[in-house]
Design a protein around this nucleic acid. Structure first.
Lengths: 337, 337
DNA sequence: CTGAAAGCGCTTACAG
DNA sequence: CTGAAAGCGCTTACAG
């Protein structure tokens, strides 16, 4: 980096003090219009660009928020980023983006980077394997507000914004019931993820409300690998009374399940209805797909999380714990074409 | 932000000077092992976390590189990020990530943010509509190195890293020729994008090498919208001698083209072979897809761009223009299942 | 309305 | 091996 123009350089040229130059550029009301104009003119012609590092340092604010996400390949994290970006942009904040790649050790080292860089706030989705939250408690110690999104933290004294999983699962299941299905299976995510339990809960509630008894033989747990999904599907299809509809944890599982049926039970393919969470962009090109999917509004999740975060940053009460918020964004059921 | 522990606090406690504490933590060889140990022990027990803002300011380095990308929804940009991240991580650099959302005005404001924040280097993919590069020339003025990726800058005096589009297009076309096609169409991207021209060039070279005359009736330009692709396809299919194979600019176009055939020319669907650029993640679930695709190694593009950038950052010769590099990453032809 | 001065938390050349 | 001091570029309470 070359050295840039400084306030001092301009002060010298204009025969005024550094303070006056600084105040002029900051539109301080104490400065005369004439002086302001002179300063601004010079700044313009010299291409003065303020050194933000110096400001950050002086003001003890970085005007930066940290973002820790597991993996940007999952497109919903990108949507969340866009929501966050919208709010951060308005506040003139920058975003330091990092990925944990689902590795808790990487997550730990990122957390320290964030603290060292004195981000003014943090938004994070923890890894699938994060169970120890003492890491994130450090932010409280140093007074940096943290909002968790999408992945529910295992410890519930953190602020958390996500979609309403229970409600979404309820709707997805209810949709199948309204289509006159009664043998409805659920392929759920790993029980270690709180979201899996929330969606399972919605499934149960929908059955209950419609007086359909819960049959645990129809509930299978997978880890998102194709192999596990195939195993789950095989188990379901081998039942004396196999399901006529399946609500799965998410799109990816549905696609593997459908691929399995295509391969092993092609004649059943058309007669089994799927619902799930997610809306993959390539859906329109698929010949076989879920009849309906829950569209998760991750843009809104990101936006709300950022709004919440800036409330905390701007209220600036580091010692006073405002309690933890828990925001659930409603999600919509989309009937696929 | 609460105030954290400072070097001064620790110096006082240990009855030594701030310089000694600083040097100890930085493992300065002039400091005795004993002193270092004492300092580090206290730092540990007090949970000292260095204030990077202060370091950055003092050292006149931000240890941050800026990233300007058009849109993270395009998954190849995410791959590029991962490549960049790998290198930046090793150098202990942070990444400020921004999206231009294909808007040159947004791009301009981002550029200023980057300069204000004194990033040590920048990696950018310009918007589809960027024609004026004076914006990016500002970085040269202030001595911040810039590498362009993926989107070739309209002005060729910038360093640029991308995949080898000419070679990829050559291979994709050649693959069709080897399959004994001779009526091979090309649906190209907008001529305003240099990449479109590069891929068209590869197409022409493959034809030429195989002594197939170029027939401009077989070449159509689209803007990536479904409507335009349909129009292009209709034109091709209405030819007296329609193509038996089509090389398209990218996956998305192929999918729209196939959807068009399904709708309007279902009987021709099976007999037309497609090749293109890109490898969409959902490919395995599609019933109709290109016979082969060029896999662009964007991870490597990002990695190489970052390596180049850090060479420039670390060599630290802001005045000396090292000339512009142009790196082309080879890409592989993948036969789809 | 303007300016002198202190200070944010570090690093580093220099002196001892 | 350790320390005193300067200084990075800003902002801001205070004095005039």
């Amino acid at each position: 980096m070359k050295k840039g123009i400084t306030l001092k350089d301009m002060a010298k040229k204009l025969n005024m003090s550094v303070s006056t130059v600084s105040k002029s550029l900051n539109n301080d009301h104490a400065i005369s219009a004439f002086t302001k104009a002179r300063v601004k003119e010079l700044a313009e012609s010299w291409n003065y660009v303020a050194n933000e590092s110096a400001r950050h340092f002086k003001l003890n604010k970085s005007f930066t928020i940290g973002l820790i996400l597991p993996d940007l390949q999952d497109h919903f994290f990108v949507e969340a980023i866009n929501g966050i970006e919208e709010v951060a942009g308005k506040e003139n904040y920058n975003i330091i983006l990092t990925q944990s790649h689902e590795d808790p050790r990487k997550e730990e080292s990122i957390v320290h980077v964030m603290i060292r860089n004195r981000v003014d706030g943090l938004i994070a989705a923890v890894t699938k394997h994060t169970i120890d939250m003492t890491l994130f408690e450090k932010f409280r110690t140093v007074g940096i507000p943290v909002i968790h999104i999408v992945r529910e933290p295992p410890n519930d004294c953190f602020s958390y914004v996500s979609v309403n999983n229970v409600e979404g699962a309820f709707r997805a299941t209810n949709f199948l019931i309204k289509k006159r299905h009664s043998r409805i299976a659920h392929i759920m995510g790993p029980q270690t993820m709180p979201i899996s339990l929330a969606r399972f809960e919605g499934y149960k509630q929908a059955l209950h409300k419609n007086r359909i008894p819960l049959d645990m033989a129809l509930v299978r747990e997978v880890d998102f690998s194709e192999r596990e999904t195939e195993k789950a599907m095989l188990g379901l299809m081998k039942l004396k009374s196999p399901p006529t509809a399946i609500f799965t944890f998410k799109n990816d599982i549905t696609l593997d399940a459908i691929a399995f049926l295509k391969k092993k039970y092609p004649r059943r393919l058309a007669s089994i209805d799927f619902t799930d969470f997610g809306t993959l962009p390539l859906f329109k090109y698929l010949d076989h797909k879920p009849v309906a999917s829950i569209e998760e509004n991750f843009y809104e999740v990101g936006r709300q999380a950022a709004i919440l975060l800036f409330d905390m940053i701007n209220e600036n009460k580091p010692d006073h714990d405002p309690g933890h918020s828990n925001i659930q964004i409603p999600c919509e059921l989309i009937v696929n074409r």
